[in-house]
Each structure stands twice: as structure tokens, then as C-alpha cells.
């Protein structure tokens, strides 16, 4: 499909506010084009298709266009990114709690049990030690998940985050098959969520309340960054290991220090998970095993994540991943 009009580089020539109108135009043309193919593919269904077109629910592109996209002071589009300094990550062994990034994310997002949108994996190292790798959605710039989605319910935004429109998702889970990082979660039942989550108005960038039969994942909190605060996980980290930043202005912060991302990455030999996949993640890691916060790499184990809610919506069920 031709979505050249959405090329973010085009925003150089026009005001950034033109994205919504273009997005709608592309969307409409795409609907018509797909309706054209449906005419051949499903002749009986297609008779009513055109009449139905006007009833088609709002697209994620339109939903995205409704969001104010974040701009730097001089109108440049933000390009959100994350750097996780593994030298400072000890799986919260020092504080003696479950990983606090995960805990903060769960509290902020009401992430249903058993979803750890940021999950702290313990990875074996050469020798006999381990290191802790907190993994969010890697926010790939060449995302395999968005490409396989049959309905365009998951999509990249110009700012970088890969989002899911749970009001469009049909629950086929091909994105979960395509994600090579195990970072997508399915609502196998109505998940347990606190009562306040149920009262929220659903937003693509804040996936509450959870919808049964749809896929969820880390949304990278661009809404929070736009409002000028760090994402929950970065706020929650007691060791300030998580930097959140903007590749456009080449700046990031962990809440304590401000760094120039490009220099920080190069100086510290940053890497990305499974670089060989060509997914081009926006999440970078600085190699380490928690030594900056005094962890010995041979000290294994972290506490299991707990979901804090005492009272959850009735009729919900939990499951194991």
C-alpha cells in the first residue's frame, strides 16, 4: 500500500500538524482499496461493503493523529528511545524487593497479571555468573509484529513507539508469533485489574482497561514523556539504570543525570538485543552485571513479581505465561 504521504521525513517540508489529515486520507484510500479486493475475494460480503465503509470504526492512525505528537522546542518530532545500563541493574537484589521497574509499570499501567511489560530476565554469562536484563518492548524500527498484523491494529508511530489498538485487534496472535523478543501478551481471559482501571477511558497509549481476547505490551509511555515525566519503569528503578530519551535532540535522562545518548552509547559499547534479526530496536543496553551497584555476578536470583491489587474486577481470571 502506498503510504508515502506518511513518511516522517516529509514533515521537514510541512508543519508537523499535517500528519492527521494525511493519515486519514491514506486510511480512506486503503479502505477503498481493500474493499476492492474484497469485491473479488468475498463476493457476497462485498455487496454491502461500501455501505458499511462509513460505519468503519476509528482507525489507530486516526487515534494516533488525535494525540498531540511530541515536538522539540523548534517543532522537530521527538524520537523516543531507551538506554538500560546493565552495570546498574542488580535485579533489585540490593533493595531486597521484586524488580521495581516492573512493579512501577504494573502500578502505573494496571498491567494485568501475569503480564510483565518490562520483565527482568536473568541471563547466563560466560563463566558462572548471570546478569539481569530488564526487557521492555524493544520498540523496533523494523518491527516484525506490525508487518504481519492483518488489520493494522499494531503500528509504528512517527515518534518511534509501536502501539496496539486493542479496539481493532482481532486476537489472531500472529504478532506474538512474529515477535522475536517474547514481549507481547495476550488477554487469554478477562484479566484481573483493579476497579479504577475499569473506569478509565481506553487510550491506545494507556491500555486500560484491558480487553479480553486482544494483545497488549509495553507502550513506551510516550504520553508521559510528552507530559514531561519519565516512564513508570525509569521512575521506579532504585538504581537509576533506565534512561529515557529523545534521539532527535540526542538527550536522555534517568532522573538523576542528563546524557547525550549518542556519545553515551558509543563510549560504553552499547548493544541491542538480537541485533542479527535486523529489527533495529530503539532500546539499547550498556553491558554489565550490576557491578556499579555492588552486585557480584555470581549472586543469582531475583524475587518474583507480585500484583498488588487487593480488590479486582469480578469475573476475572488469571493464568501463567
Amino acid at each position: 500500500m502506498n503510504s508515502a504521504e506518511l513518511d516522517p521525513d516529509d514533515s521537514n517540508t510541512g508543519p508537523p500538524g499535517t500528519v492527521p489529515a494525511l493519515a486519514r486520507g491514506v486510511q480512506r484510500r486503503r479502505i477503498l482499496r481493500m474493499a476492492g479486493s474484497a469485491l473479488f475475494a468475498v463476493p457476497p460480503l462485498a455487496f454491502g461493503a461500501r455501505a458499511w465503509l462509513s460505519r468503519a470504526p476509528a482507525s489507530p492512525l486516526e487515534a494516533m493523529a488525535r494525540m498531540s505528537s511530541a515536538q522539540a522546542a523548534n517543532g522537530r518530532l521527538r524520537r523516543w528511545s531507551m538506554v538500560i545500563d546493565l552495570r546498574s541493574c542488580d535485579g533489585c537484589q540490593r533493595v531486597g524487593k521484586p524488580p521495581q521497574c516492573t512493579a512501577a509499570c504494573i502500578e502505573g499501567h494496571f498491567a494485568p497479571q501475569p503480564m510483565e511489560w518490562i520483565q527482568v530476565y536473568e541471563q547466563e554469562l560466560p563463566g558462572n555468573g548471570t546478569r539481569f536484563v530488564p526487557a521492555t518492548c524493544q520498540q523496533c524500527q523494523n518491527p516484525p509484529c506490525t508487518n504481519v498484523c492483518p488489520v493494522g491494529a499494531t503500528f509504528s508511530t512517527p515518534e518511534g513507539p509501536v502501539l496496539i489498538d486493542q479496539e481493532r485487534c482481532i486476537g489472531c496472535r500472529i504478532c506474538m508469533a512474529a515477535c522475536p523478543y517474547d514481549r507481547r501478551f495476550f488477554n487469554w481471559a478477562t484479566p484481573p485489574q483493579p476497579v479504577e482501571a475499569l473506569g478509565m477511558k481506553y487510550e491506545v497509549e494507556h491500555q486500560a482497561p484491558a480487553i479480553r481476547g486482544t494483545v497488549m505490551k509495553c507502550d513506551f509511555c510516550p504520553d508521559m514523556a510528552r507530559a514531561g515525566t519519565l516512564p513508570y519503569c525509569a521512575q521506579g528503578c532504585p538504581n537509576n539504570a533506565i534512561y529515557y530519551g529523545d534521539l532527535e535532540e540526542d538527550v536522555a535522562t534517568n532522573g538523576k543525570a542528563v546524557i547525550q545518548i549518542s556519545r553515551f552509547l558509543s563510549q560504553n559499547s552499547a548493544f541491542r538485543l538480537n541485533e542479527e534479526y535486523g529489527t533495529e530496536p530503539r532500546v539499547y543496553y550498556i553491558p554489565g552485571a550490576g557491578e556499579a551497584v555492588g552486585r557480584d555476578s555470581s549472586k543469582r536470583g531475583r524475587l518474583a513479581t507480585v500484583w498488588p491489587w487487593k480488590k479486582v474486577a469480578s469475573g476475572s481470571r488469571t493464568w501463567s505465561r
Binding site: S37, V148, V151, R168, C169, I170, I174
Partner: peptide, 21 residues
């Protein structure tokens, strides 16, 4: 197998040529 079979028509409204499904 669909989680949301009620939305199956989205395949027609929003179908993408690029998807193997």
C-alpha cells in the same frame, strides 16, 4: 482461534496486503 471473532470484518475494513493472514 481468534480472540475476537466478533471483529472478523476488520479483515475487510482494514486488511493489509502485507499480512500473511
Amino acid at each position: 482461534d481468534l480472540g475476537r471473532p466478533d471483529r472478523i470484518l476488520n479483515m475487510i475494513w482494514y486488511g493489509r496486503w502485507q499480512s500473511p493472514l
